[in-house]
């Protein structure tokens, strides 16, 4: 039945080569932890992606309860964590995942750096990778504010002050980020929310797509 369905689609769209290219590519021995235990260092990139998937999923579900408004944000987070079944796990995944993803990315970066894997012809993929790192830090920064608790607001205050101390455009930058010249409030939260949920994830998906495309195109770097 499934085979017939697949054949029906494949006849029309010729999808076999698409996934065959990914499925059949050979993986060399030096990255395979089953052959060399030390090859576990090659897992950090994949684990980073794994946590990103967890983040996207748990984030989508968190939005079923979360309200991005100063008056209600905290209440909704408190409610979804304490009243909703498995709220602790879903929010826990998103909260701890945000930390774990930074750790994994850090380790992945160090692996690529110390193996010199960013050298020609892989310079562009390194740059895209570092951009992913920046986007992740941005996601962490904006996501930190969303529960609207004490640490969220005061940490954001400090961040905005740092932005404000930029020479020349400092005040402008701060107002643009915070949505108000003086207040960290309603408009700051909605801005950070939009950046956290739409702008940065969009950038992240594009960058990750490029990252993977380049890996497939160039293959993995050889053994040291």
């Amino acid at each position: 039945m499934l085979t017939k369905l697949y054949d029906w689609i494949d006849e029309r769209l010729d999808i076999t080569p698409l996934w065959r290219d990914i499925a059949d590519h050979e993986v060399p021995e030096h990255v395979n932890p089953a052959h060399h235990f030390s090859a576990f260092v090659y897992c950090f990139g994949g684990l980073t992606f794994f946590v990103v998937v967890i983040q996207i999923l748990s984030g989508m579900f968190l939005m079923m309860y979360y309200v991005p408004d100063v008056e209600r944000a905290w209440e909704s987070v408190y409610y979804l964590q304490n009243q909703v079944a498995y709220g602790q796990i879903v929010r826990g995944m998103h909260h701890w995942g945000a930390s774990i993803v930074i750790v994994m990315m850090f380790l992945h970066t160090l692996r690529v750096f110390f193996q010199g894997a960013y050298k020609k012809p892989r310079e562009l993929n390194w740059i895209v990778g570092v951009l992913i790192f920046f986007v992740m830090l941005g996601l962490g920064l904006t996501g930190y504010l969303l529960p609207w608790d004490m640490k969220a607001v005061f940490a954001t205050k400090v961040t905005l002050e740092i932005a404000q101390s930029t020479p020349l455009i400092g005040d402008l930058l701060k107002t643009l980020l915070a949505g108000d010249e003086h207040i960290i409030g309603a408009q700051t939260l909605t801005r950070f929310f939009a950046i956290h949920v739409f702008f940065l994830p969009a950038a992240l998906l594009v960058l990750i797509g490029l990252h993977f495309l380049m890996i497939r195109k160039q293959g993995i770097s050889g053994p040291l």
Partner: peptide, 13 residues
């Protein structure tokens, strides 16, 4: 980790 350690939430800002 998510089961043992609930995500922290401080009081409302």
């Amino acid at each position: 980790l998510t089961i043992v350690e609930p995500a922290p939430l401080e009081r409302i800002a």
